[in-house]
């Protein structure tokens, strides 16, 4: 079922957490609310859940106005960051809880709860206490508990932030798999842009209580509309440069002595802030080919799969990743940077 926000505002006293937000989540899709901490994404999620009621605006779920309905009266369920498993109940009792509160008979509730646990691969764990499970298993119980209610909308509040890196990748794949196979409508909150790109059909990026940009993962990464977004999606560093329009679809960007032709329809001529993606920079020992940007290594870190460099150039300090680890460059080394056009984005003045 779809979720629709119409000019929703949420204030706490003088502080405004959500400052007028409108969006639609299509039925059967997974949409991520992405943004730095304090941007209002969790408040937005809680507004969908009914754990907060908006100060202004309307909220519709499946076409029905639910603006002033409490959480219990809405057909949504939520997976919490801390999982919020009831510590005084067994795994089965936890999964049964929502079914019993909906007035379903005990035997039937238990059967459906077992099905739900099977779906997340936890059959055999019914009698355990939550504290006897690992973090990943607790996460699955929380998912099963929300899933068995067959809600119109399933909400995830930073569900993976308490897991270690390896488990995080596995769980996010499982969540996406479940969402696709069951055709669920899911709203997912995270501050990790990689996680958001991996699981989402669409991403809504929020900043300071407002929507910064929304679209598919590829749109946002390749065509960020604002400097904030360019910085937030991918670790690109903003550089100072100059822009000159070549034709309707292309501009020539000058960074230091380097000149790169980039696809762009909006940028005006003159000085500009330019985001350079770290993976679009090829680091060569100086002097390098003509048209390369000269620089000097400021910091170098060895990460096993690749090197990370901070490089001081005439256009500012750039952050670059380099897959060649066998011959690392030491700080102080003079280098030449070759910039690939797809990773150079004009983001504003």
């Amino acid at each position: 079922m779809s979720v629709e926000f119409r000019d929703v505002v949420k204030r706490y006293g003088n502080a405004t957490a959500v400052a007028g937000v409108s969006f639609t989540v299509e039925a059967g899709t997974l949409v991520t609310l992405l943004g730095p901490s304090g941007c209002g994404k969790t408040t937005t999620l809680r507004l969908i859940a009914g754990l907060e009621l908006p100060s202004e605006g309307r909220i519709l779920i499946a076409g029905r106005d639910v603006t002033n309905l409490s959480a219990t009266q809405r057909d949504v369920s939520m997976v919490f960051q801390s999982y919020a498993l009831f510590p005084h109940m067994s795994v089965l009792e936890n999964v049964c809880y929502g079914l019993l509160r909906s007035g379903i008979a005990k035997a039937e509730a238990a059967a459906r709860a077992r099905d739900g646990l099977k779906q997340v691969g936890l059959d055999g764990f019914e009698a355990r206490q939550p504290s006897e499970l690992s973090g990943g298993q607790q996460q699955r119980v929380a998912v099963a508990r929300a899933l068995v209610l067959k809600p119109s909308v399933l909400l995830f509040d930073e569900p993976l932030s308490n897991l270690d890196a390896r488990l995080r990748r596995q769980m996010r794949e499982e969540i996406r798999e479940l969402q696709r196979s069951l055709g669920l409508t899911v709203v997912y909150v995270t501050h990790d842009q990689q996680e958001a790109m991996a699981v989402s059909d669409r991403i809504i990026v929020m900043n300071a209580g407002l929507i910064e940009q929304q679209g598919g993962p590829r749109d946002l990464y390749e065509r960020p509309a604002t400097p904030f977004l360019a910085r937030f999606m991918g670790e690109s560093t903003p550089a100072r440069g100059a822009v000159r329009r070549l034709d309707a679809a292309r501009v020539r960007v000058r960074l230091g002595e380097a000149e790169i032709d980039v696809a762009d329809q909006h940028a005006a001529d003159g000085d500009a802030t330019v985001a350079v993606r770290p993976e679009a920079i090829t680091v060569e020992p100086a002097p390098g080919p003509t048209g390369a940007l000269a620089g000097k290594v400021a910091k170098a870190s060895y990460l096993g799969t690749h090197m990370e460099y901070s490089i001081t150039t005439a256009a500012g300090t750039l952050f670059a990743t380099c897959p060649r680890v066998e011959r690392p460059l030491a700080p102080g080394a003079a280098v030449a940077l070759v910039l690939a056009p797809r990773g150079v984005i004009v983001v504003g003045r």
Binding site: A49, S77, F86, Y97, G98, L149
Partner: peptide, 24 residues
């Protein structure tokens, strides 16, 4: 979030109080 979990799981406020808060 234990309270909130109960609320989103169809437990109304008195039920949340009864089954989740009071036992704890």
């Amino acid at each position: 979030s234990l309270d909130e979990a109960s609320l989103t799981l169809r437990g109304r406020a008195p039920q949340t109080l009864m089954f989740v808060v009071l036992p704890l």
